[in-house]
Design a protein around this nucleic acid. Structure first.
Length: 366
DNA sequence: AAGACGGGGAC
DNA sequence: GTCCCAGTCTT
């Protein structure tokens, strides 16, 4: 069996890309900053999810200087619902550094770029090839899958195969149009050489693909094993007049820096109400006087499925007064439902907030 | 080398 | 339900 012929693959791929590529917003610009934004948003995130965020982001933060001087809160709010919030924090940090050290312009040296927060191997290569025409191959999930099939590299899509793929790509990449080549590889992976149900009959390089010739394209790369666990969490919506109590999550870890209603996970064997009372006691230092079920919301993360049970929580007048006084505004705030829209919330909390808006939230307590 | 880190969409 | 996605950072 012969190995793929580089010249053949390269030219067929670029021809295919020229005629079949999607018309995407970030393909209409040559602004390195806009390219950067798109590359970061597209990490582990589908094109359709990114498009509206990309447009809104560039409206809100049209250039690096604007991004650098915007408050983190506003930056996170623009990212709300996209996930992996470290990406937004890192872009914000990188923007500040680019203003300070490079006069607000993205550097085009690999070392300088790679040292910026959020610039790993992929993003660095993408920027250098697409925005600066440097012949550096990108390796993302698409490229990895395409190359594993093309070269018949069996096994899972892990870092062990990285070196072999990189070596092959050094030969394969177009020196004339490295940015287009890289995007063509990713586009092929997204539209044709898909993880499931690849459309090999429509593939421009099927004649050079070892996996296709052997009919094993469906099992390369090998599917990975996953276990999804279920969790239940309780949430207390505590009201003071027209305002509700929210608190800020810690600066590191899951959903870092986002705001949410007080609450937490239910322990094994614990009732929902007991969990609610415990969380309120632990987090706010007050006793819940009463709780009325409000709404149940399911939210799926990658490795676990959370059911959020939101309660209308009521405190005694004394506790409410105490809480109102001792509230530390950097961590805990009373906000109206309309002001809540300015705070970055996890998607599960957004669902609860939307419910509160919809029912014109007004507890039935006497 | 392995795990943490979100969310939505395809099937 | 399951699997995956234009990855990066930390341990």
């Amino acid at each position: 069996m012969t190995n793929p012929e580089s010249r053949e693959v390269r030219s067929a791929l670029l021809r295919w890309y020229a005629s079949r590529k999607r018309d995407l917003p970030w393909r209409r610009t040559s602004d390195p900053y806009a390219i950067w934004v798109s590359e970061v948003m597209l990490q582990q995130t589908t094109v359709s999810a990114v498009i509206p965020y990309y447009e809104r982001w560039l409206d809100a933060f049209p250039d690096i200087r604007t991004l650098a001087r915007s408050p983190l809160q506003k930056v996170l709010r623009a990212w709300q619902g996209l996930g992996y919030y470290a990406r937004a924090r890192n872009m914000h940090r990188a923007a500040k550094e680019i203003v300070r050290r490079f006069g607000g312009r993205l550097p085009v040296e690999a070392e300088a770029l790679r040292a910026l927060p959020g610039f790993g191997p992929y993003t660095t290569a993408a920027l250098l090839s697409i925005a600066a025409g440097r012949p550096i191959p990108v390796i993302d999930a698409n490229v990895r899958r395409v190359m594993m099939r093309l070269l018949e590299i069996r096994g899972g899509a892990d870092s062990r195969t990285e070196a072999e793929i990189r070596t092959a790509l050094e030969t394969l990449i177009s020196r004339r149009a490295p940015g287009r080549f890289n995007q063509a590889m990713m586009e092929l992976g997204a539209l044709v050489c898909r993880a499931r149900n690849p459309r090999c009959l429509s593939c421009p390089v099927r004649g050079e693909c070892r996996a296709c010739r052997l009919g094993i394209q469906e099992v390369i790369p090998a599917p990975r094993k996953t276990t999804v666990t279920k969790q239940e969490a309780v949430v207390a919506v505590i009201r003071d007049g027209g305002r509700v109590l929210i608190q800020k999550r810690p600066p590191a870890g899951l959903l870092a820096g986002l705001w949410e209603f007080p609450g937490g996970k239910r322990e094994p064997g614990e009732s929902l109400r007991a969990a609610l009372a415990r969380e309120v006691r632990e987090e706010l230092g007050v006793e819940l006087a009463a709780a009325r079920p409000l709404v149940m919301v399911k939210h799926a993360y990658t490795r676990f499925l959370v059911t959020l049970h939101a309660f209308d929580g009521r405190l005694s007048k004394k506790d409410l007064g105490r809480l109102r006084k001792q509230t530390d505004r950097s961590r805990r705030r009373w906000v109206s439902l309309s002001a809540l829209r300015r705070y970055p919330l996890p998607s599960g909390s957004v669902k609860i907030a939307e419910y509160l808006q919809d029912v014109d939230f007004s507890p039935v307590f006497p």
